[in-house]
Nucleic acid binder design. Structure first.
Lengths: 144, 144
DNA sequence: TAAAGTAGTGGACTTTGTCCACTACTATGC
DNA sequence: GCATAGTAGTGGACAAAGTCCACTACTTTA
């Protein structure tokens, strides 16, 4: 088992890393979207035809809250809903052209943020960073 | 430079890791404190005699907001303030016995959370995790 | 086909955080 | 010394983010 100093180091890292990402997320990229709105539009972008409830579950949001976000998006012509063919209570969400553009912008800028983060590292260091991330990812989330 | 797939992996890791820590932080450990309140009391715990403004700056909080949190803590007898000897505008913050106990509890439980996170890993894997964390910490935050 | 459950929505609310203005003090330049 | 600018701490007013509940319209289960 790890000792106290190691645990403390991990907690310190967690604080620093979440703070760093939090700062990135604050700036949220010159879009008119809040952090949660950004996650929502990307969720839809990467997964068209999702239903509101699926979005809410996947992002761990209250369904009522999600409903309101989607309504706002609809009002701003970022998306439209179509009735589900199988369940009359349900709806499928689709991004409009405008919504798709915004999502792409957000997606690109999120990539750019990662690049900016690593800009001061040498190629070797960047590789090292990547390997470390993959290691943690594998250990905690059981991915390859 | 890292390629698109690697960037995507890092973003995916960031989402998963912040979500994981967020979930940890939500439960905030059976204390009656919110996440920010928890950070605040630990800040004072590890650094007695701080002034409100120092706490606010270090935690990146609005000074007005901080003032209200401290007031609440004072009302709940978690801390008391004494006048600064050098600056009559300013005050030093001290935890009461009750406040110290709460901070210790929070601190211990934060350690425990990290342990819980790693409980399913073998000692070798835990060491691997630790090394990966240190690598990222060093690369991003210039620590040894 | 009755009963239980689910998708989506809105009302009402709490929590969290921001912005501004103010008082009381301190530091700086002359 | 004294005017001026700056800072610590506080509260009012507000906005943003999120939660909880109740309801309608539908679907699933027994």
């Amino acid at each position: 088992m790890l000792d106290q100093n190691e645990i403390t180091s991990i907690r310190s890292f967690n604080r620093n890393y979440t703070k760093l990402l939090g700062i990135l997320n604050k700036k949220v990229l010159d879009t008119p979207l809040s952090w949660t709105e950004g996650r929502t539009i990307l969720e839809i972008y990467f997964n068209q035809d999702k239903t509101p409830i699926e979005v809410a579950n996947h992002l761990n949001l209250d369904k009522s809250y999600t409903s309101r976000i989607l309504k706002r998006f609809e009002k701003n012509e970022l998306l439209y809903k179509s009735p589900s063919s199988t369940d009359l209570r349900s709806k499928k969400i689709h991004l409009t052209t405008k919504g798709t553009k915004l999502a792409q912008q957000l997606d690109e800028r999120s990539d750019q943020q990662i690049k900016d983060l690593l800009i001061n590292l040498s190629p070797q260091q960047q590789q090292e960073f990547y390997e470390a991330v993959k290691t943690i990812d594998k250990l905690l989330f059981n991915r390859k």
